[in-house]
């Protein structure tokens, strides 16, 4: 009996095993992968005023000729259109810039926090972790909304600064780049703190003691021991926040202004108000192409992490 268990590591009958694989697999194939293939297809279609608003339509009933016609009808025009329309190209660049800057800001804020959490007494560490995660459970929308009331021209920040006599005129923060950075840092901070904390907590403290015994000053052992050993956490945290930040829609829409037009907003504008489905799909494909390298690196790190533990 032991042998049978060993030969089938999960101990399931072949049918049970197939079922366990097949159900989630099929679900994701139909509802995750297929939609992307559809996006890809429509990005090569033409915009028409019809329902649905694109052509050609693939009609498999029409046989081989229909398939040939379908491929002949595909076009790269939507991609050219992105490059022709400077606003969209600028949106790509500003998305990358905003996401990168926000990631660096988050790293600078999250690292001291994660470090302090990892150095806190063992008994209160779970509470601190919980306190970092708790705000993440409330909706992103609510957390962003909370900042509107603070940063507004007539908001709490301006009111208290004026009351304190620090400024005479209210500061214009809402609908600027600064507001978007604040929103991004605030919304994604837990995703940066947790991987950093995970790697800093594992750090073997005898290494630091050894460095100190050998006369290494604390700041030097921090740079030469702690920081290099926490790099996996830094990498995981940065990708975990950078990737969704590039495609962020809610934060620039609510906190940003004309100077912070991001690619998510460009996609939304093409799709809903302009009803240009092929154009929106082309923007989505190009956004995924921009993100494919960071996503691949992130997945690689994740898989290694899982396989290292398994």
């Amino acid at each position: 009996m032991t042998d049978t268990v060993a030969s089938k590591p999960e101990g399931t009958s072949p049918w049970g095993r197939r079922l366990v694989v097949a159900v989630p697999y099929l679900w994701l194939l139909v509802l995750f992968l297929t939609p992307f293939l559809i996006v890809l297809k429509i990005s090569f279609s033409n915009k028409v005023v019809a329902q649905p608003p694109y052509e050609p339509q693939l009609d498999l009933a029409g046989g081989w000729q229909a398939i040939k016609d379908f491929f002949a009808g595909l076009t790269l025009d939507n991609y050219y259109a992105i490059f022709d329309y400077t606003e969209n190209i600028e949106a790509y660049f500003s998305s990358l810039k905003i996401a990168a800057t926000a990631t660096i800001l988050m790293l600078l804020i999250a690292y001291p926090m994660a470090y302090a959490m990892a150095r806190a007494p063992k008994t209160i560490r779970p509470t601190l972790v919980m306190a970092v995660i708790l705000p993440f459970w409330t909706s992103l929308l609510i957390r962003v909304y909370a900042w509107i009331g603070i940063l507004d021209r007539e908001g709490l920040l301006n009111a208290s600064l004026q009351w304190l006599g620090i400024i005479d005129e209210p500061l214009e923060i809402l609908h600027t780049e600064i507001a978007v950075y604040i929103g991004m840092v605030y919304s994604y901070l837990p995703f940066m703190v947790l991987p950093l904390y995970a790697s800093l907590e594992k750090l073997d403290e005898t290494l630091l003691e050894a460095a100190a015994d050998l006369g290494c000053p604390p700041w030097k052992s921090f740079w030469q021991v702690t920081v290099p050993l926490s790099l996996p956490g830094v990498i995981a945290g940065c990708f975990l926040v950078f990737i969704p930040a590039v495609g962020e829609f809610v934060i620039p829409e609510l906190l940003g202004g004309s100077g912070t037009y991001m690619i998510g907003q460009a996609l939304y504008a093409e799709f809903f108000p302009n009803l240009n489905w092929p154009g929106a799909c082309a923007i989505a494909v190009l956004l995924l192409l921009v993100l494919v390298v960071p996503i691949a690196i992130y997945q690689n790190v994740q898989t290694k992490e899982i396989e290292g533990r398994a």
Binding site: L28, L29, L31, F32, L33, T34, P35, F36, I38, V39, I42, F239, L240, I243, P244, V246, G247, E248, F249, V250, G264, L267, Y268, F271, W277, A280, C281, A284, L287, L288, L291, I295, Y298, Q299, Q302
Partner: peptide
Amino acid sequence: GMIYAPLVMPDIITGLSMLLL
């Protein structure tokens, strides 16, 4: 891949692709 990708996929792309499906 299909398990990890949705975790970092921008919402706007997930939404668009779902609607088109």
